[in-house]
Every structure is written in structure tokens, then in C-alpha cells.
Amino acid sequence: MQFFDFIGRYFILMSKVFSRPEKRKIYRSRIMFEMEALGLNSIGIAAIISVFMGAVVTLQMSINLESPFIPRYLIGYATRETMILEFSSTVVALILAGKVGSNIASEIGTMRITEQIDALEIMGVNSASYLILPKIVATVLFFPFLTILSILIGTAGGYLIAIFTGVMNPSDYVEGLMYSFKTFSIWYSLIKMAFYALLITSISGFYGYFAKGNSLEVGRSSTKAVVVSSVMILIFDLILTQLLLIA
């Protein structure tokens, strides 16, 4: 029953979020602000984990695919495919669910308990749309760029580890990067990330918007937002993979 209550309240909130904005100009400036707050400020964490993951994947492949029957360039190929198909969208999204999701839930939750949302409502502002819509638009537009950045930095990480450790020949690695490249894989990754951005922002916004009580409750809302967003990312990873790659 609680599940249906959650679903019902979530979609009612989303209908408010996606209703016609009061003034587009104000929303445009808020979208730019959120792009900086939620997107630009996440570049650092996405870059750091990508470079290390790219390097580690290359190292692991080099060690575990040590066989005269397996061409060495396949290590570069496997690193590229790992980064494009799963890491730069799904794993980066899970990291962002922690960083951005908790940020959104705690920000909106604090606004709820300090009556800032009530103040907006009293002014006649559609508070759900004013607070959540710019965040959704900003992340849906910006997070795919993080995916592209993550792919580039991750594969560069693999290249650097090949150079610095000598675990494989860098030219083999580059050959692998260019081997059997499918453009659709990039689209698949970007589409997934756009969905994840929508999930992270709307779910975190939902938990923040309906926070009650005091700072403890805001903390709990923030935790729930991260957990539910992460689970939903994994479920949608499965669904989108089935729909986009297999169906």
C-alpha cells in the first residue's frame, strides 16, 4: 500500500513540476544556475573516478587476459566498451545519485522545514515547478556531457597506465580503442544518462519536497533519496539495456 502511495504522490508532484512555468525567463536563469551547481561542480568527482577506473580496468584486463590466443589490442577494446556501455553512464550516475541526490533532497527538505516552500506557495508560485523543474532540465542536459567526459578521461586513464607501467604496448591499446567502434553505443550511454538524471533529480526532489519535522528528518529524506535513486538506476539500467540493445 505504501508503495502505491509513493507512486501516486510522486506522479502528482511531477504533474505540478511539469506544469506551465510562471515566467520562462526566470526559469532559464535558474536552469543556468543549476547547471553550474549540479553539473559543473560534479566534473571533478566524475573525472577523478573515471581516470582511476579506466586505469584499473586496463590493468585488470592486462593481467587476466595474458594469453597468446588473445590479441593485446582487445584490452583497449574491452576498456573502451566497459567505459562506454556501463561505467560512464551507470556507475557515474550512481556516484552522482550520492552527490547530487543528497544535495537536492537536503536543500529542498531544509526549505520545507524552514517554511521557505510555504512562503513561495503564499506568493502564488508553483513551488514544485520553481524548485524542481530547473534542476531536472539542468541535469538532463548536462549529465550526458559528464558521460562523454568520463569516457574520454577513462580511456585516457587506461592509456596513461599502459605508458607508465609498461603493462602493455600503448599503440596496441590505441588500436583496441578504435577496433569495431559502434556509434550507437555512445547514444545508448547518453540516453541512459539522461534517464538517470531525470530519476536522480525527480526522486531526490520528491523526498526533499515532502520532508517533515526537523533536521533529523531532512537527513533521513536525503538518505532515502540516495538509496531509492540508486535502486531505480539499476532497475532502469536493466530495462533500458533490454529495450535499446536487445529488443
Partner: peptide, 17 residues
């Protein structure tokens, strides 16, 4: 619409941080 004719002062001020 009618809320545009309403002003409210909240206990804690409720200014947007």
C-alpha cells in the same frame, strides 16, 4: 490568483537562503 493579493510574514522569516 488570489494569493497574489496575500502577503505573509513567517515565524522564522522564510527568506530564500
Amino acid at each position: 490568483q488570489i494569493r497574489r493579493d496575500i502577503g505573509m510574514i513567517f515565524q522564522g522569516g522564510a527568506l530564500l537562503d
